[in-house]
Design a protein around this nucleic acid. Sequence first.
DNA 1: GGGCGCTTATAACAGTCGTCATAGCGCTAG
DNA 2: CTAGCGCTATGACGACTGTTATAAGCGCCC
Lengths: 193, 193
Amino acid sequence: MNTKRPAPREQLVAGAADMLRRRGLHATSIREVARHSGAPLGSTYHYFPGGKDQLTTEAVRFAGDAVTRVLRDRLEAGPVEGLRSFLLFWRDVVTGTGYRAGCPVLAVAVEEADGSGAVDAAAEVFRGWESLLTASLGTSGVVPERARRLAALVVSATEGAVAVCRAERSTRALDDVAAELDALLSAAVGRDE
Amino acid sequence: MNTKRPAPREQLVAGAADMLRRRGLHATSIREVARHSGAPLGSTYHYFPGGKDQLTTEAVRFAGDAVTRVLRDRLEAGPVEGLRSFLLFWRDVVTGTGYRAGCPVLAVAVEEADGSGAVDAAAEVFRGWESLLTASLGTSGVVPERARRLAALVVSATEGAVAVCRAERSTRALDDVAAELDALLSAAVGRDE
DNA sequence: GGGCGCTTATAACAGTCGTCATAGCGCTAG
DNA sequence: CTAGCGCTATGACGACTGTTATAAGCGCCC
């Protein structure tokens, strides 16, 4: 038990992120987020005067940072092993929720119109993941330009595969993507050995 | 001029598909679809007694079939050239709408809960695209198992890249994915020549 | 102990949502 | 001419949305 009270603000952000990945942005109401977090509705606008856009933006950053930490951890074993582990992480997310959850960042990227702060946060999260992958590939000897392109492919393919798996209620897409990307990255880093 | 009146039913489906790719599923209301198509609200439930789910399902199939036709056309020049052309098609969609439109099928796949007919239609569309790509790669000498995996990667990466591009308001992701997939498919089909 | 600031609680607002029912229109068949 | 049917037009329904305002509770510091 860290704190007596569950720090309602953080609870609200985490709850919003969890609902975003399950139902999407526009199907997630502030009332439900509050109820889901055990916080009163009024508190939501106390902690997030910017309204739903602020709450959504922080939820995207919260979920994005969590995934970033996972990615960084897994990449310590190198880009190939890191990628394999990263895709297994997403596989667990999808199967562990009975194919109900996807990626909250993608949900915001697909639903929200431009001009919203949340979609900017989503773009930033995507770039962050790509930076991590680019750096990892770079330290494994892949030239920067190629590393950047491979990183973009990994992020796009992962996000797409998660959505496809959710729709098909099957992990086939993620498994196929994992196999191909594994081979591709192995060849890219193992060129000179 | 084919018909005097613009065949309101088809117009509604096409309008729904267009709004789906711009705003997403839950931000697209039946009233706006009707108004956007110049049809009265009552007509919507006359043509689609199944309500929003039926309209959405038909819109997903409509948009999915349109993309399927594009993909089939482009693949007549072979899988590598077809892929390049296919990704350019998506690039045009994104840039031609000022980064406002994405893929309506992905929108439904991300937003809708399971149990809806629309998400089943989305999964079917994804499988259709993969089948086309698998077949094209197969006729170019790629062994079936590998062809299937590559097709899954192409579909997932394309859908993901479109969403990322929309969020970042840039075509970088699609361009990077195009370059890498081009090289990957070229190597896969050119193995024995 | 009194006051004050942070948090909660409650209610209300204007608007939109999906959906349904019903009355009216125009056209075509008998 | 009239009956019937496909489609339109209109309005209403209950529920939900984001948002705001205001009153009450709470603990801490002076």
